[in-house]
Design a protein around this nucleic acid. Structure first.
Lengths: 211, 211
DNA sequence: GACGATACGGATAGATGACTCCGTTTGTCC
DNA sequence: GGACAAACGGAGTCATCTATCCGTATCGTC
């Protein structure tokens, strides 16, 4: 809805029909392949799976990195979309947690890929910033709502929230195939996010051992 | 202490003096390089940095995967060691948290590498199992102590704990350079780990949105 | 210090992956 | 339905990485 995924950008180019089809299919297939085999998957494999020649891949995405980027942006856009939907449908008290659950319920590999992008050393940050900012705005709304409703501690901002979400994804990867453990581990994070009801500063150890 | 790191295993081979030196240096350098540049770093680079020929690397570690494995095992052994030390010096109430802090205080890259190994597709699991089991035992003791002391919720086991630790590492990577945010995010996890003082089942949403 | 064995270094083989060139096909517009 | 531009396919190039071979240097022992 936000940006037409089949056209490269707010258009300087009309792009032919088959080209549009191929581009869309490539994005689809690339996401699947990258999530399954990791970012190390070869462009040739993606081309084969998408039933196009290698040249076609590079025609649409001048470099492998660009393809990676495009896939990531697409995913971020979808997430922002879902966040907005949840906010509207679910209301401020539950929307943030619903969003967390939605992300975490996706297969671990699906989330793994997002993280895998980071260590690809890709300059994703720059190109992602636009989509990332949109998602950031959605998260801001979700977080604000939850904090206003008193269900999330107030010392958290969007950066912390994002990091916690990513970390939790990685956490669940390690518990794949053990749903009971995963449920308990998720409860830990969820409880940690909740507004502290007891004393604001508890006497638990912060530093390391007394040296 | 547990296993002499300079000898390949409980010894069938006496191994010459220079060979022992080189092997140790290789492990040292490999850990540094892998943590900095990721597991994609070339063996040639490691050889150069360690001031040995490439052949020497492959003589000691028949395959790159074997080198990766050895580095990981070494790290796990050291962690187990530190865990034992903390248990003895710090006591059951604080030892687990101290261990968490110790791991998390290491530079993010240092922790990143452990996770990076996983997606290298390496059959690390098998070869790691021995060192992993040792660390697992230490964690069992730490967790038991903390639970007995009433500072950690009782529905957690070692698998959950391990996953949470790994996930928190990844979380902190994303907050590198923002110590204040990192502190707050860590507090979320720590509070989540604590024994629940209030009602055992809080009325917070579990599932997604009401569809 | 000399000899045998062990370990070393660097050049090289073999594999793989990103990216390009160019002849052929396909969509679009009249 | 014909002409022209746009897009396609896949063989080929270039770089890089893992792993090996073999002549040389070093260690350990007498």
């Amino acid at each position: 809805m936000t940006t037409d995924q089949t056209s490269p950008a707010t258009g300087v180019k009309p792009l032919r029909a088959d080209a549009r089809r191929n581009r869309a299919r490539l994005l689809e297939v690339a996401e699947a392949v990258f999530t399954e085999r990791g970012t190390g998957a070869s462009t040739e494999e993606i081309a084969r799976e998408a039933k196009v020649g290698i040249a076609t891949v590079f025609r649409h995405f001048p470099t492998k990195e660009a393809l990676l980027e495009a896939v990531l942006v697409r995913r971020l856009e979808r997430l922002a979309e879902e966040g907005r939907r949840l906010m509207a449908e679910t209301g401020p008290t539950y929307a943030l947690f619903a969003f967390f659950d939605l992300v975490l319920d996706q297969s671990p590999v699906k989330n793994a890929f997002a993280a895998a992008l980071a260590d690809a050393g890709v300059d994703v940050r720059a190109a992602t910033s636009e989509a990332g900012r949109a998602l950031g705005e959605v998260l801001t709304v979700l977080l604000d709502g939850a904090q206003q409703a008193g269900v999330v501690r107030r010392d958290l901002g969007v950066p912390e929230l994002t990091a916690i979400l990513v970390g939790t994804c990685r956490m669940l990867e390690h518990l794949d195939g053990h749903p009971e453990s995963a449920k308990r581990a998720r409860a830990v994070v969820r409880d940690g996010l909740k507004a502290r009801t007891g004393s604001p500063e508890e006497p638990l150890p912060q530093g390391g051992a007394p040296s």
